[in-house]
Design a protein around this nucleic acid. Structure first.
Lengths: 216, 216
DNA sequence: GTTTGTGAAGGATTTCACAGCA
DNA sequence: TGCTGTGAAATCCTTCACAAAC
């Protein structure tokens, strides 16, 4: 029951570059915004203008997965969005655990942007006895000791790390040991993880630090 | 008093790829963490191991800017960190404005990670009369009407956008008109900006949405 | 007429591999 | 001996340009 197993499509025999995968959510985002404003067809030209990229790149990216457009017309917005969501695995709900219930962790748990996209924060952890048992946006904060059991019980595949930098590596080790395969890391370090586990960092400071190069 | 004007270094006649610039802050971060743990020399091998990248890439990246290492020994940590900070323009303080004082904006203004890196949030804006005048972490929230004047008066070069998506493009237009050249955008859209203005997005949902591809 | 999908070309980035220096 | 700095090679990614489809 693979999402796509179309071995008649030569592109699928090739591994899709990671940069391409990272752009697909951008396409999804624009498509969803366009359909909300009443359009139902979009060309690679229009898509490219929105995202400040070339139409050719968009067409090439999409061609890794199939033929979604109609010549002379463009792409059916609703259909393309649905297809991309399926490719990305967004046609379902993902249970997520957040570890670290300090200021940042509480902001993450309360952030209203995850749920509408299918990322459901189903448990919250901390190692501090003063925080364990507290209610954060409807979740009871659990001890990190119960991490592995909860991850298994709720079939959690994604972890979000919001602990202070000093604890981040060991929390990430625990997530890996618990079987988590995708980690969103808010701590300002590059953690070590075994291959097969993917980490993406969220660090606004890094973004600022590279932009200053261009205005200094 | 240019940072580096070494025209005897051929690398500096070439434009430095943006991906390289984006990696420099990672190097700075690791160097700072290494020096805090008592080391004073580091090799490209060690640096690469921390960051999960090849030593050759690190050496090549650094070679765009000069010759910082010693053969047989490695890099002096404190010296390299200082050099990279200078290259990136981090050897000074940057005044920053945050626009949008809802839940997210207040979290950004209160986030303790910016100031130690030299990003000083000096003013906060909102367009809602119920929020204007409020105190947020020691700043009085100003009307967006006063944006241009404040940007000029405080020599603000960096803006952080934390308004709802519906207002984001027009807020970004105002920032551009006010002369801001670097924008950190938390709103989930890809804004249109004229060339010469740089925008980086912070969107944890996009990061999650590309990771699911690999675990679906 | 318009716009896709895609080989081929071109460009950019990464890695190799080794001379040169400490 | 150990590690950097760097041309050259290899790889990866983007753009071109056009036949095919609507």
């Amino acid at each position: 029951m693979a999402t796509k197993n179309n071995s008649s499509n030569p592109a699928l025999q090739t591994v899709v570059p990671e940069v391409v995968i990272q752009r697909l959510p951008l396409y999804v985002r624009v498509l969803s915004q366009f359909s909300n404003s009443g359009h139902d067809v979009i060309s690679s030209e229009q898509l490219g203008q929105q995202l400040q990229m070339t139409p050719a790149q968009i067409r090439k990216d999409l061609s890794y997965f199939g033929r979604f457009g109609k010549q002379g017309r463009g792409y059916d917005i609703a259909m393309l969005e649905r297809q991309l969501r399926t490719i990305l695995g967004l046609d379902r709900t993902w249970n997520v655990a957040v570890i670290g219930m300090g200021r940042l962790g509480r902001a993450v748990v309360s952030y209203p942007g995850f749920a509408p996209e299918g990322f459901k924060i189903v448990s919250a952890f901390d190692s501090d006895d003063k925080i364990i048992g507290m209610d954060v946006s409807g979740l009871v904060v659990q001890s990190t000791a119960s991490l592995a059991a909860t991850v298994k019980k709720l079939d959690i595949k994604i972890g979000i790390v919001t602990v202070p930098i000093a604890h981040a590596q060991s929390v990430i080790d625990s997530l890996v040991k618990a079987g988590i395969k995708s980690i969103l890391n808010y701590a300002p370090l590059s953690p070590q993880v075994p291959s097969g586990v993917m980490v993406r960092g969220v660090d606004p400071v890094l973004s600022l630090q590279s932009m200053t190069y261009y205005i200094r």
